[in-house]
Simulated scan of single mutants.
Amino acid sequence: MNGTYGLAFWYGTSLILNGEPGYTIGTVLAVFFSVIHSSYCIGAAAPHFETFAIARGAAFNIFQVIDKKPSIDNFSTAGCKPESIEGTVEFKNVSFHYPSRPSIKILKGLNLRIKSGETVALVGPNGSGKSTVVQLLQRLYDPDDGFITVDENDIRALNVRHYREHIGVVSQEPVLFGTTISNNIKYGRDDVTDEEMERAAREANAYDFIMEFPNKFNTLVGEKGAQMSGGQKKRIAIARALVRNPKILILDEATSALDSESESAVQVALEKNTPRYSF
């Protein structure tokens, strides 16, 4: 660095003494400090060029996902939209394997008929296909063979968004958004009123603990519901499902985090909500 300084000043002094037009002490110093400062900035920025390369690699995968055309498009306007769903659900000779594991058959010729108003429990060991049946009913996947009907209509012929509006889901690990309890429940349906929200909270046995918070329904649940206990998150998620007034209610071990008293109260509330059938 000192050698660079000496060379710059020696060369600048030589230009001035030789009478080169346009060169003064001020000009030499201005050029000198401009070069030194720009070199310093480039040197400081160089280690971050790797970050740009990593970002480009990550963006490539993200843009691939964005540009991918899904086989089941929730935003599609195609498909029929029945005014109501009142009939039965039927699995007819359904076989299925996940795209990531094509060699492993999860379902092999499943036949299942569920009448309107029935409550059906799927029981079995891990990996037996319980969650797969639920995912197929939500039409997150399409079966490899056979078909699934609702009111004798193949669900693949129905409009995806319209069909899913008639389904309420409470998963084993419910997802809450980083906003208020009120907004989390109202996400269940676009036009939910405050009265419907409170009624759903009562049915889910969530109203009492919500009212104990200082801000009540305006209480923030935290990122992914971090401020709530497991049982509280479950009951808020159940209220969100009930406020949709779904015709098909899917509960994936939805009461596993509740105490026996709360579980009994929620179960009674769910049984009152007819007409609907549930898993």
Score class of each variant (00 low, 15 high):
2 N>G: 12
5 Y>H: 06
11 Y>Q: 09
11 Y>A: 06
12 G>R: 03
15 L>E: 09
19 G>M: 12
34 S>H: 06
42 I>E: 10
46 A>D: 13
49 F>Y: 15
50 E>G: 04
51 T>E: 10
64 Q>P: 05
70 P>R: 11
72 I>R: 01
72 I>H: 04
73 D>W: 07
73 D>Q: 07
78 A>E: 03
80 C>P: 00
84 S>G: 10
89 V>C: 14
104 I>S: 15
105 K>I: 13
108 K>Q: 14
111 N>F: 01
111 N>Q: 02
114 I>K: 07
114 I>Q: 11
114 I>L: 08
117 G>V: 05
117 G>L: 07
118 E>T: 01
123 V>D: 05
125 P>S: 12
143 P>Y: 08
145 D>N: 07
154 D>P: 14
155 I>K: 02
163 Y>D: 14
165 E>V: 14
168 G>N: 14
172 Q>R: 03
179 T>Y: 01
180 T>F: 01
180 T>A: 00
185 I>T: 13
193 T>W: 02
193 T>C: 04
199 R>W: 09
200 A>D: 03
205 N>Y: 13
205 N>P: 14
207 Y>W: 12
209 F>Q: 12
210 I>C: 02
214 P>G: 03
219 T>Q: 00
223 E>P: 00
224 K>P: 00
225 G>C: 04
231 G>S: 11
245 N>M: 06
249 L>Q: 09
251 L>F: 07
251 L>Q: 11
257 A>D: 11
258 L>P: 02
258 L>K: 07
261 E>I: 13
263 E>S: 05
266 V>S: 06
266 V>R: 03
271 E>R: 15
274 T>Y: 03
277 Y>C: 12
